[in-house]
């Protein structure tokens, strides 16, 4: 980041952040070192950019077309479709609490900074998502032509000449993404305010956290997601009887080339999971009921590389319904409707 930053009392910024983070969430290590005003200007600029189709080659899509607020920042599709119509091998992920993610994406262990991640959809060519590679200057010119951007950039990046650049765009996008915090579901109110959950959901919670089902072993902690560096094979595919996953779906193996990493993926957050169907990295499971059935069978296949926790279990119909009811209790309606996260245009 080339911007001269106003290094003001870190504790002040951290304190502001502490009051914003959902109850039970740890302090972010990347806590902002900016003064609060510039910080919130960056968030506001990032929000405008997130919802701006000018950032794609043909003004066809914005980040928000694949990451829609009412769907917890997913797109309702099995696999994403880029600006030029190309089908992405994988599906758009929820951005809820993405600031806390140990790594970014379904299977990339090394992508950890939101600033770096934002360049992927902007510039990616295989597949094309927003298609800006080679068209960066056109996009920047389009932003300069929009009168609302000059003051937004100036406030977000004070003390620079022309602040409109790709570097600053990703800094602002990341600042906005760090405000996508979701921690006020019925489950959270049960935990922090001692409010009752519907009985079915409470019974489902018992199952979710049980050693027998082990859901919480992989989707654990305040985020209901895996920790840094954790990737698991859940037995969704086995195309050759030796554990292979289909092309584009190889998971961690794509990055490490290690045979044992075939089919290993990050266990994504289950917060707001009821609104993010279809499920799994390629949207190949349609409903939460089917997800539960798949785990109950010990995976869709007998993939020999399956994680040892994917061993199957028996549930009565009532218990399966209870587990799904618990997953529904992780929906944070305020997050899906928060005006400050919505389209500012």
């Amino acid at each position: 980041m080339a911007t001269p930053t106003l290094l003001i009392l870190t504790s002040l910024a951290a304190a502001a952040l502490a009051s914003d983070r959902p109850r039970g969430f740890p302090l972010l290590e990347s806590a902002a070192t900016l003064d609060p005003e510039t910080q919130s200007a960056r968030v506001e600029l990032g929000r405008h950019l997130f919802y701006d189709r000018r950032l794609s080659v043909n003004r066809g899509i914005s980040c928000a077309d694949c990451h829609q607020q009412d769907l917890a920042f997913t797109d309702g599709r099995a696999r994403a479709i880029g600006a030029t119509g190309q089908l992405h091998p994988r599906g758009a992920m929820s951005l809820a609490n993405v600031a806390y993610a140990g790594s970014l994406g379904w299977d990339d262990p090394d992508l950890t900074r939101l600033e770096d991640q934002a360049l992927v959809p902007l510039l990616n060519e295989h597949p094309v998502e927003m298609g800006l590679r080679g068209h960066e200057d056109e996009a920047l010119a389009r932003l300069r032509d929009e009168p609302r951007y000059a003051p937004l950039f100036r406030d977000a990046f004070p003390m620079t000449g022309d602040p409109i650049s790709l570097d600053r765009i990703v800094v602002a996008l990341a600042a906005f993404e760090r405000t996508l915090l979701s921690g006020d579901s019925p489950y959270d109110r049960w935990l922090h305010d001692d409010r009752p959950l519907p009985e079915a959901a409470r019974r489902g919670m018992r199952l979710f956290f049980s050693a027998r089902l082990s859901c919480s072993q992989c989707h654990g902690g305040f985020g209901f997601s895996a920790g840094p560096g954790e990737f698991f094979n859940t037995g969704l595919y086995d195309v050759d009887g030796k554990g292979a996953y289909p092309a584009g779906s190889e998971g961690l193996y794509r990055h490490t080339g290690r045979p044992e990493d075939m089919g290993r993926f990050r266990a994504p957050t289950l917060r707001n999971i009821a609104v993010t169907a279809p499920y799994m990295h390629d949207g190949s499971v349609g409903t939460l009921e089917e997800v539960v059935e798949t785990y109950a069978r010990g995976g869709r296949t007998r993939n020999p590389l399956r994680d040892e926790l994917i061993r199957g279990f028996e549930l009565t119909d009532q218990q399966a319904a209870d587990l799904v009811a618990f997953l529904h209790a992780l929906t944070d309606d305020a997050f899906l409707e928060a005006p400050e996260l919505s389209n500012p245009w």
Binding site: P26, L191, D194, M205, F209, S216, G221, F222
Partner: peptide
């Protein structure tokens, strides 16, 4: 359960791993 949750919430600020373990106890009983 209410007091257990209160202890969990304090614990979450002190030790995330232990908090996870206590949450599992509360959730499953």
């Amino acid at each position: 359960e209410a007091k257990a949750k209160a202890d969990h919430n304090t614990l979450a600020e002190l030790d995330g791993e232990l908090a996870k373990a206590l949450l599992q106890v509360i959730a499953t009983g």
